[in-house]
Design a binder for these strands. Sequence first.
DNA 1: TATAAATAGGATATTTTTATCCGAATTAAA
DNA 2: TTTAATTCGGATAAAAATATCCTATTTATA
Lengths: 144, 144
Amino acid sequence: MFSKACEYGIKASIFIAINSREGKRVNPKEIAEEIDSPKAFTAKILQALVRSNVIKSVQGAYGGFEIDKEKISKIKLSQIVEAIDGDNIYSGCGLGLASCDEYHPCPVHDKFKIVRTELKDMLENTNLEQLAIDIKSGSSFLKI
Amino acid sequence: MFSKACEYGIKASIFIAINSREGKRVNPKEIAEEIDSPKAFTAKILQALVRSNVIKSVQGAYGGFEIDKEKISKIKLSQIVEAIDGDNIYSGCGLGLASCDEYHPCPVHDKFKIVRTELKDMLENTNLEQLAIDIKSGSSFLKI
DNA sequence: TATAAATAGGATATTTTTATCCGAATTAAA
DNA sequence: TTTAATTCGGATAAAAATATCCTATTTATA
């Protein structure tokens, strides 16, 4: 469904959110350990998330990654997915046709649209705060 | 969502179904032209579909690919997807956790499950005959 | 101001997916 | 029985995704 990069991006963002709620910055090493991902690759993804304003980085000693506390509840999964995988999962044709719409639909256009809309709504209605709270309370997990 | 191979596999199966309904066999060249895919790569995918009993091949002169007429309405998209992409799209964790279930869920487990079930139902309730008829009647398209 | 601890980012390697090529095997029909 | 049309399958190539490494840049603090 999502690329590896996107999976890491989502999990990393949740971990950063958890720590930012407690006023802590985290670095790629901690993040990679916590979400069970390759460190250097994860660092690249973090850079991309910084460029698309999902997370913030602070360079230099005592730096790291963080998210403004008041933004945590505003960041939706859809923003992370779009930043890393683009919007193809929403707008692309399920069978890869270059132009697929009501007027020139692929064989599964209508049926697919329902699923895609469901996915889109889900991603647009899920924010980092909810997910961070669940992890913190032990009702969901970032690895294994 | 699906791999390129799977997209080609679905479209090829629909085209073969259309022709089999009219008693015609088709070869990779015709198929690739009709679904706008690389010929040799498509041929490999057809082989895989033969091995998993979705389509039938007839070797030698005047051979080609076909689907038994009475099977066309029985073949579901889910069979094609599973034959090519496996069942990860149904059973895999949305965030890539090795073991993700009710007892040890990833952060999006519940939300994801709804979308995945919707997708699964859609694929299990869509058969090749429906799709072939739509193409034939001009209400959907295999390329562009 | 020097130092150490960080992120940034370019270069490169590895793996997977996508794509191509070619000869072997098969088979209908001349 | 030969020929031509066809699928099968192994080898290889190209492209994309995933992953690693190293140096430059930034910055708080001693």
